[in-house]
């Protein structure tokens, strides 16, 4: 079937298998940041934004994004660098394999939640598993990032 959609701001028209998953499809388009960590929708590694909302690309048919805007970390390099620097300053990126999906969801959280509490942050990001960091360093990075964002706003 044919789909026409926006991938990281660029319009794409393509012929795709009807049952290809968005995860597999965007990888064929060079979006290698999108990873598969499970088959049961539990890990969050494949998180992308569809119309700005974080979704699991492992559970989304590519056919379903016809006419929509899809964003992967490749399309948010500036934001990834900005937040990623805070992760890197904690050493919490570790193996890095879960990072793209995690960062996508952090960026989605920043849009959806205003001044979230520690508990709200944990709850929003609960679907992003990480086996290296024990999550604690990720949370230090988020707190530092939020503090900087607040500072920017007050300046």
């Amino acid at each position: 079937m044919t789909i026409k959609f926006w991938l990281n701001g660029k319009q794409i028209e393509d012929i795709i298998p009807d049952d290809i998953l968005l995860l597999d499809y965007v990888r064929t388009k060079g979006c290698y940041s999108v990873k598969r960590g499970c088959e049961t929708a539990n890990c969050g590694l494949c998180t992308v934004l569809v119309e700005g909302k974080p979704v699991l690309s492992c559970s989304t048919l590519a056919a379903r994004v016809n006419g929509k805007h899809v964003t992967t970390l490749e399309g948010l390099q500036k934001e990834a660098e900005e937040f990623g620097a805070f992760l890197a300053d904690q050493g919490a990126e570790q193996c890095g394999f879960c990072n793209p999906g995690f960062i996508m969801n952090v960026l989605a959280m920043m849009k959806e939640l205003n001044d979230p509490t520690e508990e709200e942050i944990r709850e929003y990001l609960a679907g992003n598993l990480c086996r290296c960091s024990g999550f604690v360093g990720q949370e230090r990075a988020i707190q530092a990032y939020l503090a900087k964002k607040k500072e920017e706003v007050s300046e």
Partner: peptide, 12 residues
């Protein structure tokens, strides 16, 4: 629903 896997899952 808030316990169900994660936000990305619940958006699907």
């Amino acid at each position: 629903v808030r316990h169900i896997v994660g936000v990305q899952f619940r958006n699907c």
